[in-house]
Design a protein around this nucleic acid. Structure first.
Length: 217
DNA sequence: ACCCAGAGCATATGCGATCA
DNA sequence: TGATCGCATATGCTCTGGGT
């Protein structure tokens, strides 16, 4: 996933062309107000209520949260977007990170994935919407670990506990190709693939970095 | 440069399980 | 019994890399 594209794609949503701001506006430090969990809840509700098509979205969102300005809510949204992309990119160790934030609620409630699916998500065009986000080796290894623990078919738990960056449907789809790959083993003309990493390879890796997934019981 | 097969992700669809 | 949910599978689409 290309975080840059994501942000660019959201610039129009964040700063609609219909609004005129002076050139320094984007660079302004907004008041670094502290967001309480109550305010975050209201923020979340407002985001759900006023979708990206809503005219003057941020004004309306701000109006729903007493004490918060338009700048505050935009800044909060930007941070949220950044956080989610960081999590998705594996740049943030989830367990520690999840201690307290609105993102925690999103991830916990799996809204993170719904967020990803929206056009304004980490894709910037219709083409990307079709293209999909490639699985990383790390995600595949987590998938294999989940497969070992929960077994074939329990995609929901594998998604919840191991490959939290993918939905159960995505995990199932990935598994489908994984097993097809196993079936095609022995075929001569095969490209190297992420699916060549199997549970056999997993054993060595997990012994060395088992503590990498502390949320895994 | 072009073509084509293979790889990979997302989405659509059907079916069974569960619940009110 | 109908509605809803979750899973498995089929299909569609794009991208990539190798062959010519």
């Amino acid at each position: 996933m290309v975080k840059g594209d994501w942000n660019l794609a959201n610039m129009e949503t964040l700063y609609p062309a219909s609004h005129t701001f002076n050139s320094n506006w984007l660079m302004q430090e907004c008041n670094s107000t502290i967001w309480t969990s109550e305010e975050n809840k209201k923020f979340e509700s407002a985001l759900a209520f006023f979708d990206k098509e809503t005219p003057d979205r941020w004004i309306k969102v701000a109006a729903m949260i007493p004490g918060k300005s338009v700048l505050d809510v935009i800044e909060q949204y930007k941070e949220l977007v950044s956080d989610i992309c960081d999590i998705e990119a594996g740049r943030v160790p989830l367990p520690g990170y999840l201690a307290s934030s609105f993102t925690f609620e999103l991830v916990k409630n799996r809204e993170f994935n719904a967020f990803r699916k929206r056009p304004l998500g980490c894709r910037s065009s219709d083409q990307e919407k079709k293209k999909g986000v490639p699985w990383t080796e790390d995600e595949h290894r987590r998938f294999l670990m989940g497969l070992q623990k929960h077994g074939k078919g329990d995609w929901r738990n594998i998604s919840r506990n191991f490959v939290i960056t993918k939905t159960s449907t995505q995990v199932a789809s990935h598994a489908q190709k994984y097993y097809l790959r196993q079936l095609s083993e022995g075929k001569e003309k095969r490209r190297p693939s992420i699916h060549d990493i199997t549970t056999v390879h997993l054993t060595d890796a997990t012994q060395s970095d088992d503590c990498e997934f502390p949320w895994h019981d």
